[in-house]
Design a binder for these strands. Structure first.
Lengths: 191, 191
DNA sequence: AGGATCATGTAACCGGTTACATGATTAC
DNA sequence: GTAATCATGTAACCGGTTACATGATCCT
């Protein structure tokens, strides 16, 4: 459901094709909501049927024609009403394959578990440096855009990235704690 | 898919009914993987068809009969092989309704946004105190269980709760930062 | 020669959610 | 009296994933 609202939201910036939306999606919003191309196309045509979007086709010779979607007034209204309607529960329950295995970690060889935690840290550090480079881009943006409305948009994008940044840093600390705790535990029962 | 493995995993502790599994689930693993009763029943019968579980019925007079599931050797093998097979990507992409709205926060009245952040903090603090009470229980457990295998299980349960604890604390700090940043921004452009 | 980019989609599948159905017992 | 607990499930729905289908152009 929310993918549709994300698409409507992006189309408030201007008309776009499904393909373009996918790119904008990946570059901006995917940290918060991911989507595949096939799902985007499917949802766009559903939104058009409901009257929230209109489309016109731009013919091209050597490539497939472009189908450019434009937000209708009805679509804008639906987006705005969704936007102001925050969910009661603000923490979405997370299903996590890695965590599920850690929960049953006592059934695994402890060296294997430690290796997985080390791998976890490496991945988080990679992701962290990605987020940091995005943050730097936004910092540049916010200095360049002296226009008030654009600066406001950047502010909220920065806040979403900051959440990712802070959370990942915490996860690294957590994993380091885990390695320490596990080593400690096995030192006690073996030594 | 992983719900099935969680069920197999819980059944390594001993035979149980679907109803009992639901309770154990909610009290232990639900922070990491949530499940509804209907899904549990559905998956249990699928697992039985595959030969990973066997069941026998315990007749009761005034209540519906109990259907007690037992892990088979095949089921145990499947669980162990899943357990050791960690996913390549250890961070699951999170779809978050709240965050999606914050991303488009520039479209909202800033007082409304601030209120939502305050509500967010209240909810996180409630959840935090819940996690802290669970942590205290586990501390008692780990002191009481001098048996090595039980203490090992508690260790890993503690690690999963600790992740929740640390993450929520960070989210509170983040939300406080957000309120500060938003106030700052609007003070600049209005004042 | 081979892979990325541009550009559109359809169809099957899979796992999680919600609603429906039944019904006695126990605790507040 | 009313809500929770015990105890089982089915069926429909919904949204996300994966695989399939087509095909030219541009870059290395």
């Amino acid at each position: 459901m929310s993918l549709s609202y994300a698409l409507l939201g992006l189309l408030t910036y201007g008309p776009m094709t499904g393909y373009q939306l996918k790119k904008v999606f990946d570059e901006s919003i995917s940290h918060v909501w991911a989507a595949s191309l096939s799902q985007i196309y499917r949802d766009l045509s559903a939104l058009e049927k409901k009257g929230y979007l209109s489309s016109n086709i731009e013919k091209q010779e050597d490539r497939p024609d472009k189908k450019i979607y434009t937000l209708t007034e009805a679509g804008k209204a639906v987006f705005i009403s969704w936007l102001g309607n925050f969910p009661e529960k603000m923490l979405t329950p997370n299903r996590d394959e890695f965590m599920l295995r850690i929960f049953f970690g006592s059934r695994l060889d402890h060296k294997q578990v430690l290796n997985q935690f080390k791998r976890f840290i490496v991945q988080m550090e990679q992701y962290l440096s990605l987020l940091e480079s995005i943050e730097k881009e936004f910092d540049v943006c916010s200095r360049e855009f002296s226009v008030e409305s654009e600066a406001k948009e950047v502010l909220f994008w920065q806040l979403t990235i900051k959440r990712g940044h802070m959370t990942i840093e915490t996860l690294i600390r957590w994993a380091e704690d885990c390695i320490y705790d596990i080593n400690n535990f096995y030192a006690k029962i073996e030594g």
